[in-house]
Design a protein around this nucleic acid. Structure first.
Lengths: 142, 142
DNA sequence: AGAGATTTGTACGTATGTATG
DNA sequence: TCATACATACGTACAAATCTC
């Protein structure tokens, strides 16, 4: 087991974030599974609640976990992959959503948006989570 | 001037984040211009340093500011827009970068990455900042 | 080079509010 | 109602980076 080293030059909350990330990407923590509470993480790793909270915030900002107030943090269940098609003459950009967009699209922390400009000038905004953009042959008719 | 209202049901750090965001998008704060220090923000708005720091973190996570240790936070200067072309048979996804990707691409907080799968199977990873994806007619040769 | 001021970052503590079960 | 867990907000202290003199 990896332990926290206070003599390392990296902050302890980043060390804990690395541990949690490792457990998630390795599959030791499965999608949907709850992580220990902030207080328990702090206790188990010998740090203050503040540092444990920060570690969770790092992993959350990477889109790996979801935190629900009053319940806890669990490993994000991957969205089923949906495909969006674009064609010649169209374009897109990716960025972090504004607060208004986050609300209207129901986006959780750490999920960018894809903004597509269609050939007819219409704008489409998608949460990037689970969305794969595929380029199809042909051109959209106006 | 908008003031902080502690009786509002929204946390004061989000209220301050709204104020700062408004000043940036309205152009009152120009790109490259430094924001007041955390201590000054806290003092001016009658809150603790903690709340002012959190407000800056919110705006930073939206990609609006950059913070440099020992100096302060300034409004992000927009990257010049570069265009990346994709063609039929290719695909892309957008997501937040892993820490390793952040380092190797030199990505600041709040910037997603665009991962393009070329027709020949090669993978390209771009910081999404200032990148516009354009769909061109035709097909990549293998 | 060095000293000091400023500013951000980390880390701890406590208290209170709010959501969940 | 009660326990648990997360969120907000305050405080303190010290470390590290930057800048100026």
């Amino acid at each position: 087991m990896i332990v926290i080293d206070r003599d390392e030059d990296r902050p302890i909350y980043r060390q804990l974030a690395d541990i949690l990330r490792g457990q998630i990407v390795s599959g030791e923590l499965q999608p949907g599974q709850f992580l220990p509470s902030q207080g328990r993480l702090a206790q188990e790793h010998g740090m203050g609640t503040d540092a444990a909270r920060k570690a969770l915030a790092v992993v959350r900002s990477e889109g790996l976990i979801v935190t629900v107030k009053g319940k806890g943090s669990f490993v994000r269940v991957p969205e089923p992959v949906t495909t969006v098609t674009i064609r010649a003459g169209e374009s897109l950009v990716a960025r972090m959503p504004s607060p208004a967009e986050s609300r209207s699209l129901g986006i959780t922390d750490g999920i960018p948006v894809l903004v597509i400009t269609r050939a007819n000038g219409e704008i489409e905004t998608h949460p990037a989570d689970g969305v794969r953009i595929e380029v199809k042959r042909g051109q959209t008719r106006t």
